[in-house]
Design a protein around this nucleic acid. Structure first.
Length: 438
RNA sequence: GGCCCCAUCGUCUAUCGGCUAGGACACGAGCUUUUCAUGCUCGGUAGAGGAGUUCGACUCUCCUUGGGGCUGCCA
């Protein structure tokens, strides 16, 4: 058995759809699992959209997800001579013919048509869908060369697959019907027909193909929203495949060794953002502390913040990492630590500070906190505990939090105060008492 | 219209004829006697409908219904 070779063949349009990248993921895993080659073919025949920028974006996206490809990237436009060579061959052997035609959008001219067999059944064993069959008579002859002389997808795709010696074509479900046509081209060209595996589509809640109207649909958008590539990769993989047991968060090694194309689902899967979000949180939790830490510093910097001298970053990280679902949430979570210019959440202020007695309470706390010997979370907690007389600390905790951080949520309150330090804490409590509390 | 494909909790799914139908997300309740989380415990919700094959069907067959794909000088 010869080497397994699969390919990912996107048209670079600037944005990579999640359905498309899932096909790439499956191809990649299949290649890595079998020890075969994962090839990249850029189907750049649409000169309008296939700009260098679009190609760059595509490569960047694959790199981000860790979809490393073998050999050199193959550019479809560069293979045009071979496409036309194949067309000549088909013309010569009677598998194709020229004919005058008018296209849907009114173009008239001579095109080359592929001649479908008029009888018999075209069949193939789809690795994910099983036996597929279609009567040849149900498929019309179809164009393979435009009136302007350029080769059409069907012929280009098949010839490229022959030239790249692709053994397994793993692609979206929307290509099943094309497969019957393509098989005929392979045969007419005297080439070996590759194996096929068609992947179901990712659909929205209504069961329609998932598109940008349904939310983030392109890889770049998930990246910008603060998703980790590993989380997106893992989630997309699970949309139509599972290892056969209850494991869901998998390492790349596990994915590679467990992946089985035959166990990929035939049915369309609905995209569930909530589960992806959960998955992302799982990956953030698993991030090495120093990686999360530098990510935090970077994002703070990008938002115009600097870590103050002597700040206990490690402590902040330990508190923040478990509760971060999106890397993008980091700036708003750390602002109150790195800057005195932090925004106040209207609702939180209204609910916690604009209440009778809060002003007196905050001033009282300033008194009590200023007497604390050691500025550490447990000691600070003692102060509030004493005030609450063993009842819930809620009435004290909430106003303090809003006063010192501007928000109704965040890391543990006393850890927060410890990180802020005595000086800032007291100043902020006082200021809130003066300016906002009743 | 024609052709092809599909059908288990709200969602992703396990089950390759023996099921008291399991897990995860989401949701609800509780605990961790401070928020928000994390963690843990508990809970509800599923086999589209109808025939058949079989001792036995969610699993096999057929029909109905529902959904999707394709039907381009797009890819």
């Amino acid at each position: 058995m010869s080497e397994i070779r699969v390919r990912f063949a996107p048209s670079p349009t600037g944005k990579v759809h999640i359905g498309n990248i899932r096909a790439a993921i499956y191809n990649w895993l299949f290649a890595r699992h079998t020890g075969g080659k994962f090839l990249l073919r850029v189907e750049d025949t649409d000169l309008e959209r296939s700009t260098p920028e679009a190609i760059e974006a595509l490569l960047e996206c694959m790199k981000w997800l860790g979809l490393s490809y073998d050999e050199e990237a193959f550019y479809q436009t560069k293979n045009k001579p071979r496409h036309m060579e194949a067309v000549e061959k088909l013309l010569a052997s009677g598998h194709a013919y020229k004919c005058e035609r008018t296209s849907r959008d009114g173009k008239t001219g001579e095109v080359v048509m592929f001649k479908m067999p008029k009888e018999g059944v075209i069949e193939f064993e789809d690795i994910v869908k099983g036996r597929m069959a279609k009567k040849a008579e149900d498929i019309q002859d179809f164009a393979i060369v435009r009136s302007d002389g350029s080769p059409i997808f069907h012929i280009a795709n098949v010839v490229d697959d022959i030239d790249q010696r692709v053994t397994h074509i793993i692609r979206g479900d929307d290509h099943v019907e094309n497969t019957f046509k393509h098989i005929c081209i392979f045969k007419a060209l005297g080439a070996e027909v590759p194996k096929y595996g068609h992947l179901s589509m990712i659909v929205n809640q209504q069961g329609k193909p998932y598109s940008k109207r349904d939310g983030a649909a392109f890889v770049g958008e998930f990246r910008e929203a603060g998703y980790l590539p590993e989380a997106l990769f893992n989630y997309l993989l699970l949309l139509g495949w599972n290892p056969g047991d209850d494991r869901e968060v998998l390492t790349k090694e596990e994915m590679i060794s467990l992946f089985d194309l035959e166990k990929v689902h035939v049915t369309a899967a609905k995209f569930d953002l909530k589960k992806l979000q959960w998955m992302n949180g799982e990956y953030i939790k698993r991030l090495p502390e120093e990686v999360f830490s530098s990510e935090l510093v970077n994002r703070a910097k990008l938002s115009g913040m600097v870590v103050p001298d002597g700040f206990d970053l490690k402590f902040l990280v330990s508190q923040l990492q478990v509760r971060t679902k999106f890397l993008n949430d980091i700036p708003s979570q750390v602002r109150c630590f790195f800057s005195d210019d932090y925004p106040f959440d209207e609702k939180a202020v209204e609910k916690r500070l604009k209440k009778d007695g809060v002003k007196a309470l905050l001033l009282d706390l300033v008194e009590r906190f200023s007497k604390v010997q050691e500025w550490k979370a447990p000691q600070l907690e003692e102060v509030v505990k004493a005030l609450s007389c063993g009842n819930g600390m809620g009435p004290w905790v909430h106003p303090i939090r809003v006063a010192v951080s501007g928000r109704g949520e965040g890391i543990g309150l006393f850890e927060m105060l410890e990180l802020l330090g005595r000086e800032k804490t007291l100043a902020r409590l006082e200021k809130a008492a003066e300016t906002m509390a009743l």
